[in-house]
Design a protein around this nucleic acid. Structure first.
Lengths: 247, 247
DNA sequence: ACAAAAGTGTTTTTAATACACCCATGA
DNA sequence: TCATGGGTGTATTAAAAACACTTTTGT
């Protein structure tokens, strides 16, 4: 988070909807915000990771900086998906007070550039995030949020769903090696539907960029599954342009 | 355009990529910008319609205001599609000088919210636009543009193409009544491909929201085509959610 | 031997593609 | 009657969907 003294642009911020996948849930990384207002009441809620941009900072860089500061991760899938600029998006008294305190300025109005990010949750980056006061929360259980952050998450999820149906991005949420079943569950959870496993396998495995590894699962009390990896080079070479307007 | 005296936010602007379709070309509405610099040289180029936002103005409203001021049209298809915030997007000396002159301020850096709009070009709105120093230019023939406006158009066109393949928005560029051939040509031009007319008709006409009118073309030296209209209510009722991930 | 999840094939249905001629009108 | 673009049908191919059992492992 930028400190008040830095050379920051108080009109423009970035907010990141950081998605992760674990225990068969799509999760989003939220910052715990505790704030004691002037009457001494403690408020406890959450907000999206985000920050004001520096005066000459590129928006994409501001977003990846926010992401790195929070998780320690670089070179992560990160896409702008919308901006939010309603003049009343900063209107709750708690939000106004919090901004005044953290920035040292009276903030009138902020336009925010929203990004969504897909990360593979590991112990390392999870610990890193927790130290930064962040927590992974199931997207279906998102609590009350600061500003219009609930809207931003809803909107980001819609973008994720759309992109997942049109581009191979599910891999970004999984480890390097993953099983077909893990991928299928990920699709089912994000798209909120159930998929026939035979048809899913057929569809996914006919693409050449799903590379089967020699390694299998071990220590599981059932037939061990093969691991696969996603080969981006093969994908880039063979990707199709589909016309298909069926609406 | 906002005048220097108004209560404007000099950090944030909106830019509109306004698409229209005529004489079998996809066109974009550009503002002619003539500027005599300090050494007396006259520069002549084009820019996207756009404006700084007012201090408390909603971005969507700023965009629709820009559109209405330029064309006289209200309630037009208008979608945000991206934001552009590179710190170097204002770097050409001509652009800097022009901003200083038109705003009366030294402008360091502006983040712009980009919208694309689809309008049905008519004599009325075309005359209106021409009076405002605007001109319809074939997207394939776009000249040198101010700032990063060439990038914005390219990006906007990509969004238009994507949306055209996934949602019925082609109608927005046509008059209320149109023929199937006009619609097909529109798809061919925007998607830059050729389509089999029998298959196109089959695909389009099986959807119930294409309503055939009794009126036919008249005065044409060939078999007159029936006019159709797009029924948004029927579309909203029957629209499908397609999963289809075939990448 | 049992529980648990992996992995596999075929049939049916639906959508996409390819392809060529007759029709209605104005000039 | 000719030129012009409108409008139509069928056969083929490809993809999606529906559906149930066998395999491998740990306990």
């Amino acid at each position: 988070m930028n400190l008040p003294g830095r050379n920051i642009n108080l009109h423009i911020s970035v907010d990141c909807v950081i998605f992760g996948f674990s225990t068969n849930q799509l999760k989003v990384l939220l910052i715990k915000r505790a704030y004691t207002n002037t009457s001494g009441t403690l408020s406890n809620d959450h907000k999206l990771p985000g920050d004001f941009i520096a005066i000459k900072e590129d928006l994409d860089l501001a977003a990846s900086r926010t992401l790195e500061e929070l998780t320690g991760l670089k070179d992560i899938y990160l896409q702008q998906f919308a901006f939010f600029g309603r003049p009343d998006r900063i209107s709750k008294s708690m939000d106004i007070a919090w901004l005044t305190e953290t920035t040292g300025h009276k903030i009138q109005r902020v336009v925010t550039a929203a990004y969504y990010s897909l990360i593979n949750i590991t112990d390392t980056n999870s610990d890193f995030a927790i130290k930064n006061n962040a927590t992974w929360i199931d997207v279906k259980q998102v609590p009350d949020l600061a500003f219009d952050h609930a809207t931003i998450i809803t909107n980001g999820l819609a973008h994720l769903q759309l992109t997942l149906r049109n581009e191979p991005i599910g891999f970004e949420l999984l480890p390097e090696k993953f099983t077909v079943r893990e991928l299928q569950t990920l699709y089912e959870v994000i798209l909120d539907c159930s998929l026939d496993n035979r048809n899913f396998r057929k569809k996914i495995l006919k693409s050449t960029y799903m590379v089967q590894l020699e390694e299998k699962q071990s220590g599981v009390a059932h037939k061990p599954a093969y691991y696969y990896r996603f080969d981006r080079n093969i994908y880039e070479k063979h990707k199709k342009e589909s016309l298909g307007f069926n609406f």
